[in-house]
Nucleic acid binder design. Sequence first.
DNA 1: CGCTATCTTGAGATAAATCAAAAAATGTGG
DNA 2: CCACATTTTTTGATTTATCTCAAGATAGCG
Lengths: 277, 277
Amino acid sequence: MYETSSSASDAASPLPCSECSTRGVCLPAEMNDADCGRVSGLVLQQHHLVRGDALQGVNEPVRGRWYAIRSGQFKSFQADQHGKPCITRFASEGDLLGLDSLDLDRYTDSTTALCDSTVCEFSYPQLIEAARHFPGLARSLEWRLSKQLGQQQELGLLVRCDYAEQKFAQFLSHQAWKGGDQNDHVPQLHLALSRKEIADYLDLTHATVTRMISHLQELGIISVRYRQLRLLDRPALHQIAAGQHPASKGSASTASDNTDHHPAWQPMPGIHFLSPE
Amino acid sequence: MYETSSSASDAASPLPCSECSTRGVCLPAEMNDADCGRVSGLVLQQHHLVRGDALQGVNEPVRGRWYAIRSGQFKSFQADQHGKPCITRFASEGDLLGLDSLDLDRYTDSTTALCDSTVCEFSYPQLIEAARHFPGLARSLEWRLSKQLGQQQELGLLVRCDYAEQKFAQFLSHQAWKGGDQNDHVPQLHLALSRKEIADYLDLTHATVTRMISHLQELGIISVRYRQLRLLDRPALHQIAAGQHPASKGSASTASDNTDHHPAWQPMPGIHFLSPE
DNA sequence: CGCTATCTTGAGATAAATCAAAAAATGTGG
DNA sequence: CCACATTTTTTGATTTATCTCAAGATAGCG
């Protein structure tokens, strides 16, 4: 099922949910310690995957497995008729993978790790059966199902945005910053995605993504060097995400005319940029 | 909750599921008569709506209601930041409305009837509670949730198609023909949607939709007069839906060079076209 | 240190948007 | 039932954001 030998299962030492740093955003969210333990007992095993490993591929038989992401990030994608890849979802810590496979015999998409990741494996029938006598789990599952439906709808809206920069701004606001340091004065993150992957998600080409990122940098809204990204002007980004046409410099955000303050990529005094990983 | 007085509830004579023509594609699908009766008992009331009536609007408080479509069609839509409407779903007989509102306080979208319609109202908590002791219902619910997730993913792919005609061909193949007469030699249907609504779904403009429909008619693949549509060349339509570039006449489908046989809209002998409704 | 994958940048092509106006259908009230 | 207003649909001319093709630059890796 896994493509590389490095992604061996780890049945010997499954970290219990109660000690998992993802607990707050995963299935046991809002649960007390006792209930949390019950969820732990439902984990069949944990899997470690490295960047590029496939959790599941197109046309593989569905075997009633759900996975909760303990750490890392994943992309789900399918190829259209001409082989153009199309990324349908990015999932990160706490997200559940496999909810859309209940009525399927074989997977219609593939899911692979964007970086080294760990997932907890569940049996779907076992989870459902447990939920019958475990209201907290049932509520958690329903909530997640409904939420994912809402997220897919949001993606539908994202792809329909008029301008590429609006797409990217929304992508940054909603998706990419989940794992970032929210408290930083100048938030920064390491994109786990290539320009091509961002393009496949936003329905653009890699060239357009590059040009658009360059433009946002010229405007002084973000500062990018390859996969390292800093957000310099959050209000301006939100205005662009909200539909403000980005071509007009300075007029987008009155309090954010950073255009000339950060002309290009220059390490600013007192701020240590993330070293390459 | 409803916009017009004509959409009164009809608690006096709720048609039981066992006698509903939608039974086979609705919640009681695959159930025996006894289980079907149990589902019937969960229906709080039925509502009749006329074209344009709102089942639910943006920002209305969510009150734990789900609706099953007994007859008719609905569209769900939201407006983006500039007021451009964006249709996120078309639902027809047997579909459930409200599954995505579990974790919401207020609706993020609106749902209105595209034609005169009837829906059955359920209480979501009551449905969930019933499902705990009613495996058939639980399975039906899970299956539907998962299926709708898959459909939203399909929509994501649809919107990303390269060409407008490919979008429309897929739209026709997957969505519009549900209610049509599948056995007809020349399938025909009445579009419940305006060009504008089709455009809002496919992420196009009404002008483009019109032009594209005209082009498909020139190619002899469909035959359209306002809302009345006939499919003349199903294989060709599927090839376009599959990504075959539609500009090239005749080469799309070897067995479907109808271009000159049906040059424009002409009633064909022996075939009675639907009279205006 | 070279090799490969990824990223940047440019010039030209293009599908669809926009703007605009006319034609056809639909609805309304006298 | 017919004039009238409104909505929907068609069609044209022009503009534009993005794609495509292509070449060069940079980073990452063995």
